[in-house]
Write a protein that binds this DNA or RNA. Sequence first.
DNA 1: GGGACCAATTGACTTTTGTCAATGGTAATA
DNA 2: TATTACCATTGACAAAAGTCAATTGGTCCC
Lengths: 327, 327
Amino acid sequence: MAYRSADQVVHKAAWLYYTHGLRQDEVAQRLNISRASVALYLRRAREAGIVNISTSTHLFRSHMMARRLEEAFGLDTVWVTERGELVPDPVAEIPTLAASVFLEMVKNGDRVGVAWGHTVYAIADTMAYADRENVTVVELCGNLGSPYSYRPDQCTMEIARRLNANGLNFYAPLVLSTEALAIGLRDEPVIREQLNGIASCDLALFSVGTLAEDSHVIKCGALSVEELRAIKTMGGVGVIAGQVIDAEGAWLDCDYNRRIISADFDAIRSIPRRLMVVQEDEKLEPLLAAIKGRFFTHLVVTSRMAGRLLDHAGAREDIEASAAPIS
Amino acid sequence: MAYRSADQVVHKAAWLYYTHGLRQDEVAQRLNISRASVALYLRRAREAGIVNISTSTHLFRSHMMARRLEEAFGLDTVWVTERGELVPDPVAEIPTLAASVFLEMVKNGDRVGVAWGHTVYAIADTMAYADRENVTVVELCGNLGSPYSYRPDQCTMEIARRLNANGLNFYAPLVLSTEALAIGLRDEPVIREQLNGIASCDLALFSVGTLAEDSHVIKCGALSVEELRAIKTMGGVGVIAGQVIDAEGAWLDCDYNRRIISADFDAIRSIPRRLMVVQEDEKLEPLLAAIKGRFFTHLVVTSRMAGRLLDHAGAREDIEASAAPIS
DNA sequence: GGGACCAATTGACTTTTGTCAATGGTAATA
DNA sequence: TATTACCATTGACAAAAGTCAATTGGTCCC
């Protein structure tokens, strides 16, 4: 990571204040600047990730349903957000938690695969800045045209920026007009390399998409409403990294899927830690499919969704809400 | 990690305050408690490691000498503390920095080997609390009798406590009266197991000791002044995990070393990341020996010591102090 | 050299946070 | 049941941090 020399003072102020525990006026005195400047520098240090303030996400793992989901579906770790009015902004709660969880999971030197969508973008947006080293963020799928706000490359780049990582974009569209073109493009060295690099990721972050008529794939123009209907009759229930899956979580053999430039499902599954984040209640069906397809190992969901998942696992008893007090 | 239910409120307050950015009075309102309580809870959250505030240690790596030391001695990473009067407490600076560096290095699931001594204890003492998971802290060497303040097991346990890790102590003395007894004891299953477990550590933390007459090994009674003198004439220059090394960093074949219960040097060297921390100026000679013995991969030192090391590497130019501005 | 522009810095003020003695509640004990 | 001891909690005050308009200092261009 490159440092401008101006950062030196900022860094020094942060060190004295946060690590040594001096007061702002003491720091000001030592560095021969005004206290107001110290306050300014400290803010910058926080914003630049020179100082990291993180809250443990244990709270959300101690939720009773989190444990039961882990057991029911053989997941590694599950985080469940609280229901209720305590939360300042219920909409932001999932991305906020997911961002914290994700930051906890990213280690120096990691290669991180990132998918796209509303949820992923919201996570990128709330995520704190951090000064990781040697982190690479790669796109899991091809790109979309510009008149859309949650472009895959934007997700990748924003996350890379916040982690001080370098971002690798796919230089290809997500969806092509013909299968032949897609096949040809996948064999282009630049694209091939990017596709091959996915399996060597240490960590992945994604959400699952629905196949509703107001869903992502429609809004971004990847799929027309007619195609969508056809795909649904063929058994499609959700979208992973731009590709349609059926109720069993398997790749759907349809024209659309064959025209896609995106991560191979086996490549995704070979990434050791895969974080799935789901905000919307409507994603139950796709999420169940994603579980069957073993697409993820870590999960962040609302307590409502957690409840429904447990219903479907047939494993839900009637004890509701509230965290499990453990010894 | 076990949670008392009282922690729930503390945790929730910390989440709302630090992650959501609410003010204390807003948090108080949401949780139906007084603002004063919120302030109290937040303090507890920080002290318990539920909230982590860490400052990047990049500042100390950008020191020009840090880079040159890495190059001159083939080290992984070197941190150099600033000289000068800016620092609130020059004595505390090394342990403070070392504690930050060490915390940055410990990852969930790690097995960490810890040696003993004044320096290690000081590090344990300044180190912030953190809520790591599945971390194990193991002692690198046997123990000393009680009337001594920096006992190896105390170092281990204190560090374990701060990391929410579990600490494994050596159930053996560091030094025995006869070689025969030491050999016998090393073959005891409990001890054997502990010794074998050292090579499987992911990270080690230690300092190097001197062989001066006011040094550690003397004060703690491990060695008499007569023995010490004998050892010095045999070529001993320093102490690593209780064992004497010569100027080349090799195990010294002497009676004392044969009576020791401690980590095998090859086992130590097989730990991938080994953090050496040196405070005292007098440790130049032992430190040079430790370098030759390839005992560590990461180093925290004062700029003064850094300068002397570079002198000995014959690689030092006359540009002094001040950090290197990079691009 | 003068002036225009921009960013960094600061003093003065406001808001937020930290602290602590006083209060109230609870569990153990006589 | 009364008594004691012990925390957790709080209100009120003091201390510290945040903010912003005004000022300074620098750089670039004419």
